[in-house]
Design a protein around this nucleic acid. Sequence first.
DNA 1: GTCTTTCGCTACGGCTCGTAGCGTAACTCA
DNA 2: TGAGTTACGCTACGAGCCGTAGCGAAAGAC
Lengths: 245, 245
Amino acid sequence: MADSPRRTGRPRSAAADRAILDATRSALVDLGWGRLTMGDVALRAGVAKTTLYRRWSNKSELVVDAVAVLFDELELPDRGSLRADVEGVVLSFAELLERPETRTALMAVVAEATRDEALRARIRTAIVERQKHLVVEGRRRAQARGELPPDPPGPEGAAEAARAVDLVFDVIAGAVVHRCLVSAARVTPRWARSLTALLLHGLAATSPGRGPRPSGQTAAPLLPPRGAAGGTGPDGGVQKPAGSV
Amino acid sequence: MADSPRRTGRPRSAAADRAILDATRSALVDLGWGRLTMGDVALRAGVAKTTLYRRWSNKSELVVDAVAVLFDELELPDRGSLRADVEGVVLSFAELLERPETRTALMAVVAEATRDEALRARIRTAIVERQKHLVVEGRRRAQARGELPPDPPGPEGAAEAARAVDLVFDVIAGAVVHRCLVSAARVTPRWARSLTALLLHGLAATSPGRGPRPSGQTAAPLLPPRGAAGGTGPDGGVQKPAGSV
DNA sequence: GTCTTTCGCTACGGCTCGTAGCGTAACTCA
DNA sequence: TGAGTTACGCTACGAGCCGTAGCGAAAGAC
């Protein structure tokens, strides 16, 4: 883990590292998390069990490292529009989650992490933060194209932009993960289109039937007055102040 | 599980059932999924280990049953507007996920289910489908208020509506779950407001700083073109018609 | 060549799983 | 009331995995 420069003695076998990580992914596919044993991984990797424990102190950490690299294949080529970029990344993320080792491992590790702060931190840095650049990049491009408003100036503007990135990341990744792993349904191109439409245009776009449009009132002004947190919503509705919850 | 009416012999103790499920939730909080053992649950419940195995054949099924009821407390009181309804359900779902037994159990069970079709089905019926009525209800109300367009007529319209419900459910639940359990961040009222704004108005609303609005183009009219489903939208934006859902 | 570290191998105590067998408790039906 | 049936608590067991220790050998650094 720590790349402490070992000066003397027999160096650790890089081949063993690779073999172990490969074996871990393979065992994950065949056995799932619950039935995956360290002994079996060692056997598959052609390595002694003790060698595993010399590198990773437990199953969780081994699996995090084995899986994290899988997410690195996610990319965000410029597809020309925000819409296309979102749709593309949704589809490639879903494709990644279709693969047995990814879905099994991701959920298992996240589950284990609910009780393990160190593991949670490892996931955050090894996977979440590492992939967040996709949102940053897509957002930057959209702003350059004029599809999204520029960030407000000043430090508070930057903080707000960071929050927006976090939000969008959670929404997109969360929707795909939930669809794949909880609802246990496939991410089809049609679904990706729907999700993208929802993200771009809001809920009103999700049932876009050619049905007649009521009147203008649903098309509330796009931007809620942010300043007034507890103010009366601009929705034209009867609701209590949104901040009351 | 099956309520096969047992006619004769000593009946199963309902008190034991309750004690076991309570003990399961309690053990989940203290130990997490990985360290939870059947023996420990039996001990906490004041019950013999064999009694557990007479009712549930393995840990996963026990935990699903122990946790499913927790989600039933989710409700959707009419808060007067779509905005308030969404925000309310996001916050109460998040509150539910803050509780250790819920978060631990949900993820663990979902993780286990990635390798177990039967368990996946159990989760779908015991949790997902059971809670989807929240979306159906909120949507129906919003349509009645004129905040969302009505469903298109005919069977195809119904299918489209069902897809919309599934999508919204995955997006909302997914975002909250991802935020809580993967990103390991708290769901604050502010975050709930931002998510709601995104859902209602689309991405352009996520960085709504009071900064100057460029021109009209980002604040595209909320509602996609009336009549023409596939027509070129008057959105003034760059995107293709939203009606392709 | 010597020193240091890793390697594969074997063995071990400790823990959990899931099952079996026993005698007893609780309830139904005649 | 008594016989039959089922659930109960308890104990014990084989099997499997975990994580560690100790060994001699291999592989580089100096």
